[in-house]
Design a protein around this nucleic acid. Sequence first.
DNA 1: TATGAATGAGATTTCATTCAT
DNA 2: CATGAATGAAATCTCATTCAT
Lengths: 210, 210, 210, 210
Amino acid sequence: MSADPQVPLRADARRNRDQIIAAARSIFSDFGPEVPMEEIARAAGVGVGTLYRRFPDRDALIRAVAVDNFARVLDDARQAAEQEPTAWLALVRLLHQSVELHLSVQLAMLSKKAHEILKEDPAIASLRDELLVELEAMVRGAQREGTLRPDVAEGDVALLFALLLRQLESRSPEVTRLSTERSIAIMIDGLKAQPGTPLPGRPLSRHDIH
Amino acid sequence: MSADPQVPLRADARRNRDQIIAAARSIFSDFGPEVPMEEIARAAGVGVGTLYRRFPDRDALIRAVAVDNFARVLDDARQAAEQEPTAWLALVRLLHQSVELHLSVQLAMLSKKAHEILKEDPAIASLRDELLVELEAMVRGAQREGTLRPDVAEGDVALLFALLLRQLESRSPEVTRLSTERSIAIMIDGLKAQPGTPLPGRPLSRHDIH
Amino acid sequence: MSADPQVPLRADARRNRDQIIAAARSIFSDFGPEVPMEEIARAAGVGVGTLYRRFPDRDALIRAVAVDNFARVLDDARQAAEQEPTAWLALVRLLHQSVELHLSVQLAMLSKKAHEILKEDPAIASLRDELLVELEAMVRGAQREGTLRPDVAEGDVALLFALLLRQLESRSPEVTRLSTERSIAIMIDGLKAQPGTPLPGRPLSRHDIH
Amino acid sequence: MSADPQVPLRADARRNRDQIIAAARSIFSDFGPEVPMEEIARAAGVGVGTLYRRFPDRDALIRAVAVDNFARVLDDARQAAEQEPTAWLALVRLLHQSVELHLSVQLAMLSKKAHEILKEDPAIASLRDELLVELEAMVRGAQREGTLRPDVAEGDVALLFALLLRQLESRSPEVTRLSTERSIAIMIDGLKAQPGTPLPGRPLSRHDIH
DNA sequence: TATGAATGAGATTTCATTCAT
DNA sequence: CATGAATGAAATCTCATTCAT
């Protein structure tokens, strides 16, 4: 679920590493990827020195958090595919579980800088590809089932996700939850196979997303 | 279109002020609200000193840009309402013009920090309210026309906008444009008065958005 | 002798802290409390960063120097009281040792700004009060002995000190020393119990000095 | 009373110049000679441009204020010498009038920087010399009269003045006034011809004061 | 000529990263 | 190994001075 385990790592070191990633995930997600390293260290309950021993610089930490997150989402996607009776339902479930996706996307797309960092990383590239393959299967499946409009591809869906997942901060939790749910529902309605407006352009595939 | 003119301001000063806001809009929009002030000054073709004379600190600049932007969008909304034959078409046009909205929303909602700054500012609060009033009229109109699903309110639409407008950086411009257009179309389809999934919760009004 | 030790502080950090205060004392005393922080850091043999880690801003440094200084003077006063055979002699000795007081007073009273900063600080307030209590004892003692004119109180003496200690910069060191000694002597003569001019007003007590 | 009138100067320009000097005197005296030029301009009711047209830089302004002040004090000294029946009384009166001296001394001695500036200026040097000559006359006279202790010279008195005149800011105006009066009285008692402590060193003449 | 806008050098402050304890 | 102190480069901000209006 995390990554790059090289050498097994002693138990306490392991624990530190996990605490750091957890702290970083939460802080990045709340304040963006520019927070002082010391802040993250404090939140993780370790000294900066320890943080730097584990992650040589900020970029490495960002990468590690992203890898961890993509891995979680990939897990989710696979479980959904396996457990849901139809591809459409798997897709819908994934959309609703998307809170997890949140950070990945945030990191991947929010700040230009973070994106530069992540798009270099092969570990991330490969996870992202696996995720898109999974998504492609769902999309094709749901189209075969006749439930998903035929003029979209996995790229469209991924990008729609991406939009969604930029959680809207800073209003009451109740409204946040409600608004997320309702936005998802509206989007899902827009995705349903139905007359509707013909979409402009061409279906966006996973190859359109760098 | 801009704001807070206090004392008329000499012609050259005025020009500089406008250049600074324009530069800041563009740079904030591309790199977020943390870029060095010197960068912004350079892009505006003035010295840092000038920037600071006009805007005592970064927050003041962020506020000024947001005010300017909200004012533009409000303009757009009013023109759309006036010129389009139906409320639904006005709404659709506004959604498509939403690239303008981009920055307002980005600034208003993207980073927790920026949001804190903006939500204090009375000028912004009042512009935002005017905008939501405008939107409310469109929504009610379109529902009366029978084109907009009846279980949404202006808050829903605003939040949907907001999602949309977080332009997805960092892919080819062609894909960016395409994806934006297609996402809008899908959302619009989702908004159409039609069977569809009943939405969870209750319509979100403008009073639900702080 | 210094102050506010919160957590014990590592040996090297402690050493740095002391060096910074020493350097600041000397530089403030020579050039006033506006010298560039970098100057102070250099004089202390540390980087600016270190200085700022220890003292979050200039005010904090000023406060720390003042606390350190008041503490020294209080020490001096107590030793004088204990070791000298008469209160009068203790007072005279304190006056002559007053070069130490120099900076405290300079900082406390010289620049309006510095004074604002210091008068907030409870640590300084309490040290100053202790010092004035000490002084009051000397004054009362010397008056009982019949050596000090009866129409003064500790406030008068403190203010006289304060004047004196604003060392006159900027002439040859020899003249500086001489002039200080001579001024003290003249003032002491003025304080001796004698016919002399009756003083205007009323004795100023320590409650007259904020 | 002011200085360096080169060309007569138009009436309004003259007025501006005087306002600036008055404002600068008051502000320097309250906050030291480092206040922003803009502050001074504002207090004088003119733009910075005007200030700079009159005084090419801060040093020139400091010099002008000092010249103006020394001139006033010299006037006072001469009047005292002329109008008082004895040299001693003239001296005492001058001491009491010393509040006027305040700024001169403050500027002349307070900040090392200001002192550097002033000691270069020939106009000031000559005013100061005239003042010290005046003082020397009083001192000698009072010694001849037998009222002033014989082991002091005009340098001692000037330096004692100087100390005094660093008015102690920042307590209640009543205490300030009282304390000044009482300190002067104590010093005068200390200066009276009397047994007293023999002073250390040698009389300081005006040649000891650079 | 008076004004106040523009400039940029320098001061303050922050923080990523290294390194002694 | 973990810690947190030290460093200095880079950012923020201020202000003396010049110059367009």
